[in-house]
């Protein structure tokens, strides 16, 4: 059975000693993210996000299906996470590890339960036809802080996605190809982002943002805070670990809000850039003007 390498005693001691001296191994300040990169794919709804060496691919897809019996007015929205042996040999296919379960729960709570996507708008004919939107999250390489990167990837992929336009006339549902009508974006309500703090020291008195994998191995606890830029908390998860002072946690939340605003502005800018890139010859503007009528 493959075994993950645990950090040696020397590494543990050194990382902690460095943190006590306000130093991180890659020279970052405690509350700074690694360089964040976001690349949209050729298709709508495909995005690759990287935080330093952590790399995540998210792809959104949609298909027509029948709504659940107990929720006839809602469309279906699922987020599937996958940590494959590509990430590290210790991850096996079809056997979710604790990391994967917690990651998928966090994304679920942050994006789905907070109502970021309007699922009612996905329903086309009550109880008969609805869109099923699915985001697949693939972790390509794991160097710490999966949650924040995955959350950014999911939100970016969903906001970038366009589903085929449809119309209903006399009970007849028509789905248009992209050639007939420009695909339409999903009905998006707010953009939540995750910010994960890692705690160090006997009392958890040192807090770090965006820990790398080697830093994550040494931490005594972590807290993931999800918010949108309006200051609404969508989810907080400090799942055990060394107890941390309540006031320090509130402080972390305030810093998280600043970071979330940064993420939000970053994503808006990237989306605008991408829209500009695709809008060659003003064709899209022309088409959307037609649709407005």
């Amino acid at each position: 059975m493959p075994r993950e390498a645990e950090p040696s005693l020397n590494e543990r001691q050194f990382v902690l000693q460095a943190l006590r001296e306000n130093l991180r191994l890659d020279g970052r300040p405690f509350d700074k993210y690694r360089p964040v990169e976001l690349i949209f794919g050729e298709q709508y709804g495909v995005v690759e996000v990287s935080f330093g060496k952590t790399k995540i691919l998210a792809k959104t897809s949609a298909e027509l299906t029948v709504p659940y019996v107990d929720r006839p007015l809602d469309g279906i929205f699922t987020i599937a996470t996958e940590l494959s042996p590509m990430t590290a040999p210790s991850f096996e296919v079809n056997r979710p590890t604790e990391t994967e379960v917690l990651l998928s729960r966090l994304l679920e709570k942050t994006v789905r339960r907070s109502g970021a996507l309007d699922t009612e708008s996905l329903c086309l004919v009550a109880g008969q036809k609805c869109w099923s939107v699915r985001v697949d999250v693939h972790v390509l390489s794991h160097d710490g802080d999966l949650t924040d990167a995955a959350c950014l990837a999911v939100v970016a992929a969903l906001r970038h996605f366009r589903k085929p336009d449809t119309s209903i006339e006399g009970g007849l549902l028509t789905v248009y190809t992209p050639a007939e009508r420009e695909p339409v974006p999903l009905s998006w309500l707010h953009s939540p982002f995750c910010v994960t703090w890692s705690f160090y020291g006997d009392q958890g008195e040192m807090a770090l943002l965006d820990a790398t994998l080697s830093e994550e191995h040494v931490r005594v606890g972590s807290c993931t805070i999800s918010m949108n830029r309006h200051g609404e908390i969508c989810q907080i998860a400090k799942l055990g670990g060394t107890p941390v002072d309540a006031v320090a946690l509130l402080q972390c939340t305030n810093v998280a809000l600043v970071k979330v605003k940064d993420f939000s502005a970053f994503l808006d800018r990237k989306l605008a850039e991408d829209a500009k890139r695709r809008d060659k010859g003003g064709l899209m503007a022309e088409l959307s003007a037609e649709n407005d009528r």
Binding site: S8, N10, E11, Q13, F14
Partner: peptide, 8 residues
Amino acid sequence: GPLTGGMV
């Protein structure tokens, strides 16, 4: 022999 302190 054993390596003490330092970082790998």
